[in-house]
Design a protein around this nucleic acid. Structure first.
Lengths: 136, 136
DNA sequence: CACCAATCTGGACTTTGTCTAATTTCCGGA
DNA sequence: TCCGGAAATTAGACAAAGTCCAGATTGGTG
């Protein structure tokens, strides 16, 4: 599957998002790379040639994608949030010294023995982050 | 066990930290409450009566405590880092709408099926965060 | 007491992200 | 086609968390 801009329009529509120019560019940045990007990185990519998309739009759009379930938010680094185009069940491997973030397929990972939730609460999500470092 | 300021001095020494006035106050704030506090909250607590400790010192001290293994860093909220006086094995329950953070004892939680680490890497830690929300 | 190293401080600065008021774009109907 | 309004975008001011630095304080040792 190629992540062309045209396909992006369809993807956005299927998530109930009005596919504008800027939104298509931002979706394309995320999905064509299949990588975890910060808002900063998205802005840099989208504005490589000529400055086309404002900071406010990048933030608004990423938040919109989040609400519509098109991307997931990954919080591993206190200084910036990453956006993850992979919304399937998976965990994360974070290389502390380089800042590199990669996926761990959840298919074979089992988490058991969690205590019951406090009453009246529902699970929003379970984040499992394995922090690693290059051996000394 | 009471977390008196005198006991704090001993705790700091046992972690190879020179127990200064400010460090004792900061340790006391964290350990007497046994709660997750942000840098901001620590500063507010320490400076309730008269302003005694500068922002720089609060941040430096918390970073020092972190390096010396006296506290743990919990990254759940993109806007601020929490510091956790509990360094035993445990996970976290985060109430998304209220920002309340609590511990989950790791004793009965089992995580299995994680893939092998990339070669040359060592695990720094595994963070498991259960995000919950009040039922609609 | 004097000295030196460690520590602390105020404040300027940086970075990430939010907000707002004004403009631009898009689309349906006359 | 032209118009009007809603949706989207924009620049830039602003806010909050955290870093950095140069100078002042502190504390222990000879």
């Amino acid at each position: 599957m190629h992540y062309t801009r045209d396909n992006m329009a369809g993807l956005l529509r299927s998530h109930d998002i009005n596919p504008t120019h800027q939104r298509i560019e931002i979706a394309h940045a995320l999905f064509s790379r299949q990588e975890h990007l910060s808002a900063d990185q998205v802005m840099a990519i989208v504005n490589t040639r000529h400055s086309e998309t404002s900071k406010a739009t990048v933030y608004n759009t990423l938040k919109l994608f989040l609400e519509k379930g098109l991307v997931r938010e990954v919080i591993v680094d206190p200084s910036k949030v990453f956006f993850d185009p992979n919304t399937g069940p998976h965990h994360h491997l974070y290389e502390v010294d380089t800042g590199k973030l990669s996926d761990i397929d959840a298919a074979h990972v089992q988490i058991s023995g969690l205590p019951p939730l406090p009453p009246g609460m529902v699970t929003e999500g379970i984040d499992l982050i394995v922090r690693v470092r290059r051996k000394a």
